[in-house]
Design a protein around this nucleic acid. Structure first.
Lengths: 203, 203, 203, 203
DNA sequence: CATGAATGAGCCTTCATTCAT
DNA sequence: GATGAATGAAGGCTCATTCAT
């Protein structure tokens, strides 16, 4: 039946649409300010139906996190095609800067989610956002390691921290240019690290 | 009378107690998760009475922001007593690291507030948190300028951004040590900048 | 199933029940003294559920107004069946007098609502009650016009004004007889107007 | 002491100021929408002090009613100086029309108060507003009686009812001209009654 | 008498979640 | 599986009234 086909198709669709909508709307409005109804509307799914796919609001939040996680995997997967690890990191920075307007308006999706989920507690999805950040951290650390640089874990924290920090500042000050300027500085910093093998990995 | 003294003292106190309680509780629980009743309880003030001092929840949030702003002013006031601007910045970093456990548990008060207030919007206290951050930024920039370093504004953004970033990571990963390690790196970075007059201000 | 029937029936019913309850309770208790819970109880609907049908108290008030508007339309629709316009007006007066006990106890529904909504302002349903009154005014004016009387608009204001006035007095003095006596006088007045074509339209 | 003198003087003053403020503000904002604090502010009296003069909000409402009653007494006192009773009534109508802008904006003070106090019940000042209206009714009836017209009580109800009705309509429709037009009609009506001794007392 | 502050009950409204078709 | 409707627990805020000085 066309009907059943459509239903089945849309069924799988719905879940995906809900995840995408959750990721988008939660990023823009924040977890607490976002209603299940908001997400349902954004996904064009009847409110009552949401609970068929996600049993609680927290599960929807986790789904959004998974969505962001997926985006990250996509991105790093793309970057992995570049031959040089430092070049990959530069391309990563470029990607960040490319998102400057979104960042200035809503902050880094994962970072803001981490801040919000840190409160909320009592539930249990407490450190879920941390895991996504950890994914990024690990990938970055891998690049530094591959580049043969010392203390790759510290370097990763420095770079990802700088990203989170510049996103937060850009957002708090509503100034995308902060992303551009910090991006340039970070790129130069990478060059410094790369250029010589000496211990000039300072910030 | 002891009674009169207490009453009078507590009367004037209440506003201050409410501000302190708001700053503390809002930092720990987040804006949306915090009830007026929570703050009232923390300040030992009857719920209904809160509204005598603050007409809306938003005003209470602003009061908390003002409280944090005051803390910052106290700190920089203290630091200003140091003779060397770079030493002041190092001492600032030390202060940040000294707060590592709080940061790992609840994040930077102003930073997390900025993230939360960015949502909420619709009201108007939108960029209030940004102003407090701007205060810190300006002070830091002043130190870099006094130290005769080029592009003091970019340096300020780098340093404050690094602080926000490391606080967020420490919080998201629940790891205070991130503050310690990044703190050291930032201190070394300052030395680098200070040591030579050359244009090695990269991260 | 009885159950299914009841559920379906009651489901569609609720909106109507709420409107009717709102019209009744608001008339009896006044807008400000009436709680959403009052209306919910009168309609036998759970309080929280009211908001599924009406997003705010003001919308409920408007619904009550619409209900009264409907009653008016029903009444005039009935009266329109009479052949003579002056007879229609007399029947209208009879209807008013027929409501004398309600009027003496609670006033004219639309009139009292108009008085209450005039305050409240700041919102926007400000002149909504005026519209319902205007409906009555227009219908009455139409009758006078059809009767070929001069200045039908002034006559309409005289008649409707007299109605509002006698309702208010009957209510303020808790005396239904005022309705009866004024009703007779108005009927006689209509006769006067009707009887001769001369300009004896004075009160 | 100057102080004691001032206090005593202002003391009496305060009561009067509160009454005047109550009359004014309650008329403009309505009973339920008016706060004790509103009246206190309008009278420039500290909130806490209001209760020294009036033990409850209801007492303040009664005071406002008394104030209006006083205004009425002043007016009729003035009108009583006119030699002819029908002239007095015409002057009364003129006074009403003179207030057309206030009436169109806020309605008749006593009439609207009557409507509002009718709800509220449960307290006890239930029919207080009716008493003030009764005062007007009695005075008007007295004029008709003095003029030797039949059924002076019915005539009084007709005239006062017309006044309440036109005030309500003017208010609901926000149109002061209604007062003007109805005023003219009422005046002509008085002439009719006056002119001949015949039984043409119809509306 | 004066007055800033305190109190507590109550109201409107929002929402996550559950149900009955 | 899909869906409109139902439910109930809060939460923010207002205010008449009372108190302590």
């Amino acid at each position: 039946m066309t009907n059943s086909t459509k239903s089945r198709a849309r069924g799988g669709d719905k879940r995906r649409r809900l995840m995408a909508a959750a990721a988008r709307v939660l990023h823009q409005q924040g977890v607490e300010r976002t209603t299940i109804a908001d997400i349902a509307a954004a996904a064009d799914v009847p409110v009552g139906n949401v609970y068929y796919y996600f049993k609680t609001k927290d599960e929807l939040v986790q789904a959004a996190l998974a969505e962001h996680s997926g985006h990250l995997a996509e991105l790093t997967g793309e970057l992995d095609k570049l031959p040089d690890p430092i070049e990959r990191l530069k391309a990563l920075i470029d990607a960040w800067v490319g998102q400057r307007d979104v960042a200035a308006r809503y902050g880094c999706p994962t970072g803001t989610l981490a801040v919000e989920l840190d409160k909320r507690a009592e539930g249990g999805i407490d450190l879920e956002a941390g895991k996504v950040i950890r994914l990024l951290l690990d990938w970055v650390e891998g690049q530094f390691r591959e580049a043969g640089l010392p203390d790759p874990d510290d370097l990763a924290i420095a770079l990802v921290g700088a990203y989170q920090g510049m996103s937060l500042l850009a957002n708090a000050l509503r100034d995308p240019e902060i992303m551009t300027r910090e991006g340039s500085r970070l790129t130069r910093w990478l060059d410094t690290l790369h250029g010589d093998g000496t211990d000039r990995r300072d910030l």
